[in-house]
Nucleic acid binder design. Structure first.
Lengths: 189, 189
DNA sequence: ACCTGAACACCGTTCAAGT
DNA sequence: ACCTGAACACCGTTCAAGT
């Protein structure tokens, strides 16, 4: 009789980088970044913390790098169905913002020096949209960083919940994000 | 004979919140955020770590809040000498970026949920510049958050050192920041 | 190959005690 | 009022050992 390969002697699936990152992301989203410890992560995976090091030799650094890669990766580029590249950029920015806000606990890690490669793919995907719109290369370079910076920075402001000056009336962040985006896309004319 | 009040029995100046924050900032700037521990901070101040809690009852949380307040506070608003409010905004943004980059290690803390009040003063100072330019209030609200988000996000990209797509040629971040700023200020017409 | 258990150096913080 | 010293619960990580 053949043992099922996905069930080991202790009757649980073997560890994998994907499962580790998934569990870590669930802890950060649910309890905050400061609650992510190797020991707690081990508990969530029903394994001793030290087992994680077998899959992530660089330890917690590598774990955090993985979280950044997962969250900061480019959103699916909208199908470039002709003409409306400006609308494509708007969609790109909205999708990316949504992803960042869905994992707000990881945002501080995105801002850290770690994992330099994590955002290059993202910039590439932005530049592609612009190339389809025949934006000149040097203007596109500026616009890409400006747009990406705006999205990340605005997400940071939202997470912080910056109060309005003086009055404490609520801010409609969705509307405000779109309005700022328009400012930027107008200038990128 | 009167003892000098600034020298205590152990021949050193007494602790104060200002001295503590200063020393902490020096550690973060010089060695990075992860090297900032209460024990090391105590060493830098030539005091036992536990003495710090007497001045910062909320402990390390309060210390980090203080760092954010120090770095994210508004830059000195340029003297509003009539007309050129758009130039004032540009100057404001450049000054603020310079401050953020001078304390890049604190940037992740700015992005964290901590110290909600830290940026309100900053938004106020931005809104003042716009009010001098007679920008309508609702347009100013959008522009202020857009500009602040852009500056913070762009600084984050710079600190990370996002590589150019494909090629690894160096990026002139100063020029790129100014160009993106122009995009935004053009849209804020 | 993959995981465990004990151990080490280091955290943040509390609390009673000193001056 | 201000600081110290010892202690506690918890980290990340190493390493020898198990299967």
């Amino acid at each position: 009789m053949v043992r099922q390969p996905s069930i080991n002697a202790q009757n649980r699936a073997p560890l994998s980088i994907e499962r580790i990152i998934d569990a870590a992301l669930r802890i950060v989203d649910g309890q905050g970044l400061s609650r992510l410890t190797m020991r707690r992560l081990g508990d969530a995976l029903e394994v001793e913390a030290m087992a994680i090091y077998h899959h992530l030799p660089r330890g917690k650094e590598q774990l955090l790098d993985g979280l950044v890669a997962h969250v900061a990766a480019a959103p699916a580029t909208p199908g470039g169905a002709g003409g409306a590249w400006r609308e494509d950029l708007r969609g790109w920015a909205r999708d990316y913002r949504t992803r960042l806000l869905a994992h707000a606990g990881v945002l501080p890690l995105v801002v850290t020096r770690r994992n330099p490669a994590a955002l290059t793919e993202t910039v590439v995907s932005l530049r592609e949209v612009m190339r389809r719109g025949a934006v000149p290369e040097d203007a596109a370079a500026v616009a890409a960083h400006a747009l990406l910076g705006y999205v990340i920075g605005h997400a940071a402001l939202e997470v912080r919940g910056t109060a309005e000056d003086g009055a404490d009336r609520a801010v409609d962040w969705d509307a405000r994000f779109d309005a700022g985006l328009d400012l930027l896309l107008t200038g990128a004319g």
